[in-house]
Design a protein around this nucleic acid. Structure first.
Lengths: 220, 220
DNA sequence: GTCTATAAAATGATAGAC
DNA sequence: GTCTATCATTTTATAGAC
């Protein structure tokens, strides 16, 4: 659907002159690859299927990507990298005196919104992270760790502020939260429940699950 | 590691005489297939790799399974079927007057314990559910639905008893919980945190996330 | 930039010996 | 029950025309 992958797709041209169409084709290939990768898996991703969806012939892919591996690597990478950028931008928008739990709530809602918007990239990464070759995995893991670090800081701040219940192992709690969120792309059906319903329920469930105080009275 | 898959592995013999060794070989192939499938994905699962791990030659697989597809289908199927059996057995062990939330707590803990014990089958199913061919997916979905139904009833009972917070969409809350649990097999490292730490944190996080009353005072 | 033609490599499945 | 030998098919990647 949407043509994501601006992040790196841009470096295709060196002149910066009129590479518009070229960039578009590159982005179309990347989107097609995410689509196929999420549905067929790493080993099942055929260049022919990607080409068909991108409406080109398979060998044309080699004009934009050095190899099948390179293309897959970029799909895995770009999804999570953009997720982190999106989250960091959103957090910057919060007022400086926002409480740690407020920041976590925003992160939950922003993660879900973005994830479900680029769901092909999300499910491609989720389903294939444990199946891609070492080279690809290394680069993906590095990026996934950067994203995990953002969440780690959110949880650390909450813990220090005494907003995390004491009987929770912070690391385990964080992984449970991230799992609940990541998994949403696997089951969410927009025709069954709205995105708003999903985020509202997730925010409430997670806040109450983590929160030390049962229900602090503070409206404004 | 463990040789799971007794469920169907048993129907291999019709005489029931001395099929012990045969059953063992069949179970070894199934375990090996779960191992490879979880790491290489559906399309990347080579009969040669399965055979190597099962310590036989590839063509021997055809003595026990009609095709590569049949073998994969059984791996996908047996993991979730056993998970449901395990959960139903555990729930039967609860006293009849257990409160709905107590039943959910037991389900959380039993799901995690069993899932992490047969993690090859679990990750194989999770990672490949969206990637296998239609035939396999149909049968898997039917079994997954049966498992989901067990959880659905647990949540329905809690809702009717007023133990679920009103601002939660029950369906969404259930999927968030199941996602958090399913995902555990992807990140859990027994050398980093004990299984007890994981289940304890998960039970607490989920109970507080779902529970209507902030903290009802009732010890015994 | 994109296509057609093709070379080279890998794998599922069967045949048939033991 | 399990193995060796083999066929048919599929797919990545390159060469080279346009």
């Amino acid at each position: 659907m949407s043509s994501v992958a601006r992040t790196r797709a841009t470096q295709a041209s060196d002149t910066g002159r009129s590479a518009r169409k070229s960039e578009q084709t590159r982005a179309r290939i990347l989107d097609a690859a995410a689509y196929v990768l999420s549905r067929k898996g790493y080993a099942g991703t055929r260049l022919g299927d990607i080409a068909e969806r991108a409406e080109i012939q398979a060998p044309a892919i080699y004009y934009y990507f050095h190899s099948r591996e390179d293309l897959v690597e970029e799909v895995m990478w770009v999804g999570i990298a953009q997720m982190r950028e999106h989250l960091e931008d959103a957090l910057k928008g919060l007022s400086a005196d926002a409480r740690p739990m407020e920041r976590i709530e925003l992160a939950v809602s922003e993660h879900l919104t973005h994830e479900l918007e680029i769901s092909d990239y999300t499910t491609a990464a989720i389903r294939n992270a444990g199946q891609v070759p070492e080279d690809i995995k290394r680069r993906y893991d590095r990026e996934a760790k950067r994203y995990g670090d953002v969440w780690h800081e959110l949880f650390e701040a909450a813990r220090k502020a005494g907003e995390l219940r004491a009987d929770l192992d912070p690391m385990v709690a964080r992984m449970l939260v991230m799992g609940a969120l990541s998994w949403a792309a696997e089951w969410w059906n927009p025709r069954r429940e709205s995105l708003a319903t999903v985020t509202k329920t997730a925010v409430s469930f997670i806040r109450n699950g983590l929160q030390a105080a049962p229900d602090v009275a503070e409206g404004s």
